[in-house]
Nucleic acid binder design. Structure first.
Length: 332
DNA sequence: AAAGTAAACAACCGCAATACA
DNA sequence: TTGTATTGCGGTTGTTTACTT
């Protein structure tokens, strides 16, 4: 028997997601946690294929996503990482945990590629942007993978090591998860990296998107059951109110956070001496880092400094100044 | 104001990698 | 060990929005 398609072609809805669908998906994931995407359409009644559900969640709905307004720093990192790694957007995104690979890819294709080509070729846009990695004529070779793996591990190991001894500051780890100030006690974690500040601003961007959608939806469908409504929309919330969260002051939209029920891992990291990821209530998340990081002792190097992002500007400049050979030396 | 064009972004598709029985 | 199911990734396309003429 052959392998069935990931989704039945008949009766599968395509195109933009509606707020109703978002609500259903978010509600389901709140209860069951992300994962087992195959069963999501069946269990939720969504007329979407599992891939579509996963993509919607990972690229748009999940908390911790920062959207739009790439900073100069992020831009430089993308350019440099792209040169280093090529079009491996997921790998690049792992260094910008608030950004999705899709977002970075789009940003590269729409903003940076041209800009980068101009700088490199004096305005000749015809040539492909990723130069270093591809121009080295090495395919996605082992050295790349090793580099990626080692950097990742070093980053995690260092973070974990330091998290045992000192609180994490916003400046140290700029990426964000839902603010702990308005999170309920349900312990859910995620696949996100653990270094998270107590800063709601970036979460608010996706949070705001969803909330706006929900709000509009609620206006359109005032007959929404109270149970759902209470969970979905912050009481008396408005887009402007939500927008406050971008100022660094967390908008107390308890209801929506309650819907999402994500705990802050920054808090978790500080509090948990073993700094392992907490397990979500569905028990779907495994602590993969534990095994990964055990027995790793990584010395601080320029690379790690850069990875830690503290004093990121200087470190990044240093890193960007060093050659690929230098940056990979000692990894093999 | 309307039409045309470009830019931005969300989503889809197909393949590869990984997990699992 | 092998075959199948599931998930992840990168390339690409489609739609919407902004801008120009």
């Amino acid at each position: 028997m052959g392998r069935p398609p990931c989704c039945e072609k008949i009766g599968i809805k395509k195109g933009p997601w509606t707020p109703e669908e978002d609500i259903i998906l978010v509600s389901y994931i709140q209860e069951h946690g992300p994962g087992n995407w195959r069963s999501v359409p069946t269990n939720t009644g969504l007329m979407r294929c599992s891939k579509s559900c996963r993509l919607r969640w990972t690229n748009y709905l999940r908390p911790g996503i920062k959207r739009g307004n790439f900073t100069d720093h992020e831009e430089k990192m993308i350019i440099h990482l792209q040169a280093l790694l090529g079009n491996r957007w997921a790998a690049i995104a792992s260094y910008l945990p608030q950004r999705t690979d899709n977002d970075i890819k789009n940003y590269w294709n729409t903003h940076l590629k041209r800009k980068h080509n101009k700088l490199q070729n004096g305005g000749n846009d015809d040539q492909e942007g990723h130069s270093s990695a591809s121009s080295q004529s090495q395919p996605k070779g082992q050295w790349e993978r090793s580099l990626q793996t080692d950097i990742k591990m070093a980053k995690q190991a260092l973070f974990e090591a330091l998290s045992l001894h000192k609180p994490i500051t916003n400046t140290t780890f700029p990426e964000t998860k839902p603010s702990i100030s308005h999170i309920n006690t349900t312990t859910i974690t995620s696949t996100y990296p653990t270094k998270q500040p107590n800063n709601a601003s970036s979460y608010a961007s996706s949070y705001e998107n969803i909330s706006k959608l929900l709000e509009n939806w609620m206006m359109k469908f005032p007959n929404t059951p109270n149970s759902l409504r209470n969970n979905m929309v912050p009481t008396g919330s408005s887009s402007s109110k939500l927008a406050n969260s971008t100022t660094g002051q967390c908008s107390p939209d308890l209801a929506f956070d309650s819907l999402l029920s994500f705990n802050s891992s920054s808090q978790s990291v500080v509090e948990d001496s073993d700094s392992n990821m907490k397990i979500n209530k569905a028990g779907l998340f495994q602590d993969q880092r534990k095994t990964n990081m055990e027995n790793h002792h990584v010395p601080l190097t320029l690379l790690e400094n850069w990875l830690f992002d503290d004093g990121a500007v200087q470190c990044n400049e240093d890193l960007m100044n060093i050659s690929l050979e230098e940056s990979t030396a000692g990894l093999f």
